[in-house]
Structures are given as C-alpha cells and as structure tokens.
Design a protein around this nucleic acid. Structure first.
Lengths: 221, 221, 221, 221
DNA sequence: AATGAATGAGTCTTCATTCAT
DNA sequence: GATGAATGAAGACTCATTCAT
C-alpha cells in the first residue's frame, strides 16, 4: 500500500497515478488487475456501453471467458474498476487530511490530490467524469457509498474550520463541499475536453483560492 | 415553485420549465416536439444507452418508424434534445445577463436561472447531468459549441468584473468560470441524488456567496 | 398413408395430420404457424437442446429476430408447439369419444386416433416421444395440464366401462389408463426407432385386443 | 457382481437399488464409479443438457479435468451411466427369467423387477424415463443394443408362452412386448410425476393382470 | 406522412474441453 | 494420476433501422 507518501509535501514530486498505483499489489493475482486496467482503458476510449467485453479481454491479454472467472458481468467490471480506483483515492485523501491539521491546509491538500490523481491518469479521469455519474444512477450502490465518504471527509474539514472560526459559520457545510468538489470536478472535465496542454495540478492553488476566499472569515485588513 | 424570488424581473414570472417551454413553437410540427420530450423522459428514466427507440416512440404516441422521419438516428435524438433544451437555456441566460449590468448581479442571476431551470425539470436535469458528458465525448459537436457558449458568457461577465475592479484580477477567468459552473453543476447533481426535499434555487444565494466571496476584491473593512 | 383402415368411421377419412391440420387457421397470421412447424421439424431432427433458433428461423423463412415477435424464448416455442399440437389432438380425442357410446368402442377409437395421428406425422411423433417428457419436467406446466386431460378422458371411459360391467371392476382406472396409454406410447416409440416399414394404425387392433382382453370381464364361453 | 440374489423368491424382500448396487465393484477404480453416480444424480436433477460437467465433477468430489481421464466427453458419461445401470438391470432380468420356468410367472417376475428397480432409485428412474429416449436418438448406439436385448428377452418369454399354448398365438410377440414394456414404463413415468406416495412395486400385480389377461388364452370356464 | 412488421448485425455469457503444473 | 485456471467457440436474444403498405 503506497500510503507512506507524504510527511510534508513530497507526494507531489512523484505524482504519477497515485490511484492506480495503490490499487496494485497482486490482489487476486495478476489477471484481476490486468482486466481492471484494460477495462478502464477500453471504457475510457469507448464509454461503458460501447465497450465490448471482447475488447477488454483482448487488451488484458486473456480469453473472453476468463473475464467471467473474475467478474460476474460487464457491469461488475465497471463497478469494480471505479470502486477499486476510488477506494484507493479515498485512502489517499484520508491520509492527506491527517497529514495536516489546519482546515485550510487540509482543503488545499485535498484539492491538490484530486487534481494530481486525475491529472496523471487521463483514462481514469475520463471514467470518473463520464461513467461515474451513470453508475451513480444505474449501478447505484457505488456513489451512495464511496463518493459519499469523500464528501463526508470534505464536510468534516469544513465543519472543523467553522468550529475553529477560520471558515464562515453561516454556510451549510454541504453546500461548501459541493462547491469545493464541483469546482475541482469541473476543472478536470474542462481539462479533459481541452487539449490538456496545461498542468491540472497547477490550477489547484487558484481553485482553492476561490473557494477558500469565499469560505474564510474575513480578516479585517 | 421557487419563483417569487425577484421583484422587477418580469422574465422570471413564468419560470416553469423555462428551458422546455421556450423550445416549443411548433418547430417542424407537433410530432417533432413530442418526440423530443418523450426522448428526454425516457432517457432520464433509463439513460441514453438503455433507452429504446421503441419506448420513445410509444411515449411520443407515434410509430417506431415515424421517429426516423424526424431524426436520422438515435444519437441525433439525444443531440437534438440536449441542443434544443440547452439552446433555450442559453437564450434565457443571455437575457438574464442583459437584464443586469453589475457583474456580481449578473452572476447571481445566472446562478439562479441555472438552478431554477434544472430544479424545475427533473428529467431535463438528469439528462444534463448524466448524458451531457457522454454526449460531449461521443456526439462531440455539441458541448464544444453550445456549452462553450455558456462558459464564454460566464467568462465575459467575469472579465468585465475584473476590468471594473470588482473581481480579483489575479485569477484566470476560465478557472473562475469553472468554479462557478462546477459548483452549480454539483449542486444539481447532489440534489438529484438526494431526496430532492429541498429547494434547489433556494441554495443559489449560498453558492453565489461562496464563489463571489472568493472572487471579489477584498474591500478593506 | 395409413388411412384406408376403416370402413365406417367417417372421422378418419381425412386423417392426414389430424393434429397439425386442426392447428392451422391463420392463428396470429401465417408466420406464427410457419415458425411452429419449422420448430417441430428442427426439434425432431436435432432435439430441443441441439436445435438452434437460427435454424428454426431459416426453415420458417423468417429472420432470427422475427421469431421473437411471436415467441418469448426458445422454451416458449417448444411449449407452444407441443401445447398447440396436443391441444388439437385432445379435441379430436374428445370428439372420438363422443362419436361412440360403448366403452370398448371408445377405447378402440382412441387407440386408432392415437396411432394414426402420430403415425402420420413422424416429426410430431418424435417431438412427442422424446421432448414431451423433458418438457414435462422442465417446462412442467404442460403435461400437468394437457396430458392429464388426456389421461382423464381415458380414465372416464374406463370407469364408465366398469360401471356398465363390461370392464373388470377390480382394477384401478388409473392403472388401466396407464397400460392403455403406455402401450400405445411404446408402439409409437418402437415404430419410430424401427424402419417404420409397417403401418402404425394397423397395429391398433392388436394393442386394443391385448388391453381390452385384460380389462374386459370374462364372458363365460 | 451382486447377482446371487435369488434362489427362490427372497429377491423381492430386499429390493433396494438392485441396479445401482450391481453396478458397484471398483471397475476402473473408485473415481469412475463416483463420477457415474454423480452424473446420474446431476442429470436426474437438471436433465442431460442442463447438467454441467463441472457440477458432476463437484458432486463426485473430483476436479473438472479428472472427468476427462475417465470419459471422453460429456456424452460418454451419459452413455456409460445408462449403459452401466441398464446392463446391470439386464443381468438381473435374465436371472429373473431363469429363476422361473412358467411364462406367466416369468413375466410376473420381470414386471416386479422392473418396477422395483426403478421404484427404489428415483434418480435412475428419471434418467431412464427422460434421457433414455433422447440418447436413443442422439447417442444412438445404446438403446439399439441394450434396450433391444431387454425387449428380446420379453419377446422370448412371450413366444415360449405362445408355443406352450398359454398365450394367444394370434398376437405378434413384438406387440405384446411393447404393451408389456410400455405399460410398465408408463407406470414409472406417472409415478415419477405424481407425489410418489404409493408403492410402485405394489402396482406390479395389477399391471401384469391386465397384460396377461389380454394375452392368455381364454380358458373356457 | 405514417405505420409497424420485419430484419439481421452485434454481443454478452456459458461451459465443454485442454494442458501446464 | 490429478488439478483447476484458462480457453474460445457457439448461440440466444436485443433493438436500431428499413420499407412495403
């Protein structure tokens, strides 16, 4: 488990695929991971509904039938891929929160992690941005559970900030979390649709600036 | 109905489904619209890929084959439905911007329109939140064009605010627009996934508060 | 054609496929029947589990998908084919019973009908002999219902004969019906497995002779 | 080979599974038999075509691949199971015939054996009633051979009875054998489809009564 | 213009069989 | 001999699209 990643800030110095990387580790053998990775690639390329199981198998270098030794159905592959990757991300996010104690700092780190993680794995980003919502509705279990945990993590930080008086107390923590997540999410989306000629993590500060600016209590100059 | 929000803005006095409503007008006859509306309903219910053309036809009260007198393919239906609805929304958004002159006011109005429009038509909201991104990738033309116009509208307001000195000049207008749109977008998404037991437009002020708070130049107290 | 077997039994003067024939009549259009007939042919040839839907479609002269406009599943085709044919046979059997009043005569006629019907349509006979029992277990509804009615018809005749004193009263009507049906059934099976170089209806008298001989009350010579 | 079962008549006092029992004997080792028995169970439960080799393997407590060390194919398993069981039954039947000399007595014993054997092993009965005919057509060699031998045995008894003048000479021995076998066969089938709340061997006398009654020469009272 | 029966290409999934260990 | 993971061929079924009426 690649969680020993950051004391101070070194995490951002080696940001390649923090999510996928942590998913490795031979869980259920090599093929399980290969299929999962192939699935993310193919789904990113064609979208879930246009992705053929045969393509995933081929890209994973296994026979079609082998897929079904590891997954019950095509749906399950998507679920597993998202859940797997998001679960890893969630761990990182929690570690990130723990690695700091000041709420503003914590949000800043979360934002950076969010953009770094997705910015370093385009395929995963695509799956997250386009398939996650689909699955949220149709394969409903997922987002209700894991995504909510991410939100809860953000909300906790917000509430702590409010308790400490560094964040405005007149805002719903839920709305703040929505703005925070939504802003980051949209950054990723627009980055995906763009030529991706700029650094996504590089925009983290600006985004945090905006959100924190609206959330912080005004310090009389 | 979250409409009693403004005093002297006649435009919003008939806000029920501002998007869909404006799409009416017998374009290419009654059936065209009926099919479009049926498509939004069915797609909202099952998702684009699980929506069957036969279902759309049935809900529209026409024969399967009739669909193809009006649309070239299933893809075209989704495109048209989104484009149609979004085009109407875009008009409203432009009118909203014109109806005010102060940038902060303009953003406030846009936010309210955004949340009111989607908050008053659940089906359309679903299609926007879940299918729009898919289509952005697969039926690519759309978002590149119409969604960009919406973004550009926001960015213009932001830039104007920066020029006038009411918004911080050190922020990229694009990033601000992303935060603005992303926040609203996430509000809608979380509202859809929730029990929808609260008023979406009612949250507009809070969202604008956060974003504007981070964007406005700090007035020395 | 084994039809010239009887002098004064008008019912049997047009016995070509009494079962299938009566099933005709454009029920649900031409294709429904064509598919059913094709199904019987293909199933007779390969057995139900080895029969491919595509083959049935081809033999019926329709597209694969067309099958599913008329039947819900492959199983349903078998069910329908058997039920359809057996229903028609059941009607004939009832008519046959009504056409005579003397129990021995009634059994004689039933036997002749049984052998004539299956003897004149080899494919149907195969399906009945080999697939009926399978379906009795797996598509259980059928035999529980229709086949039971045939048995009940036989048992009624037997009971009437017992009441009238022409049949031994010390035998269970169920066992007698089993012997009667089983004997006929086995005649068909062995005929199917043989070269079919003899007339099946021609054996009716002998079978009835044996069964009746064992069932009749002994008339003192 | 447990065939030393009857001197006079005790055979019927311990009728549990005469067929299966005789099949034992470590032919080609323990696993061969275990697989055969598992096959009968699984096939009885699901039917041959719905029975998976993996299920048979599991029930036999061996690995999937092991099956193929003992059998060439799935078809071969069915063939072997039926052949094995029927071969044992055939031996019993021959012994039964030898154990008596009077034709009527011989038929009576055969009937009792038939009903006892199948009545004491439901799974085997199912396989015989439902799969035997299938295999008769598709795995053709079998019934043409073994089943024919059983028929021939019956026919010999019948012919001997005719020669001795105890059976009517005007009946085809084949037809009589068909009636005899068919009646017994149907008894088993109807017993299987019923709740099996009655004793199958208990019906032997009645069946023999009917058949013999129709076959015996009438003794002038 | 409208219909809706018909089409048939496309794909997920199963499972008998193999073979490296 | 024994295993069981892996294979991949095969087939039922769906549904967007067409076209004769």
């Amino acid at each position: 488990m690649p969680n020993e990643h950051l004391k101070d800030e070194p995490a951002k110095e080696k940001p390649e695929n923090p999510i996928t990387a942590s998913a490795a580790g031979e869980k259920r053998g090599d093929k399980y991971q290969r299929i999962l990775e192939a699935a993310v690639e193919v789904i990113a390329e064609h979208g879930f509904f246009n992705a053929r199981v045969a393509d995933i198998a081929q890209r994973a270098g296994v026979a079609d039938g082998t897929i079904y030794l590891y997954f019950k159905s095509k749906d399950q592959i998507l679920m597993a891929a998202i859940s797997n990757a998001f679960g890893a991300f969630l761990e990182l996010a929690r570690a990130e929160v723990k690695s700091a104690s000041e709420p503003r700092d914590q949000l800043r780190r979360l934002a950076l992690l969010h953009l770094t993680s997705l910015g370093s794995n385009r395929n995963l980003a695509i799956v997250f941005q386009t398939e996650l919502r689909q699955s949220a509705r149709f394969l409903a279990q997922f987002s209700q559970h894991q995504l909510k945990q991410y939100f809860d993590l953000i909300r906790e930080v917000v509430r702590k900030g409010q308790d400490q008086g560094v964040f405005r107390g007149d805002l719903s923590d839920k709305i703040v979390a929505n703005c925070f997540f939504g802003s980051l999410d949209e950054m990723v989306t627009s980055w995906l649709l763009s030529e991706r000629d700029y650094s996504l993590p590089g925009a983290a500060d600006a985004v945090v600036d905006v959100i924190l600016g609206g959330v912080e209590t005004r310090r009389p100059s």
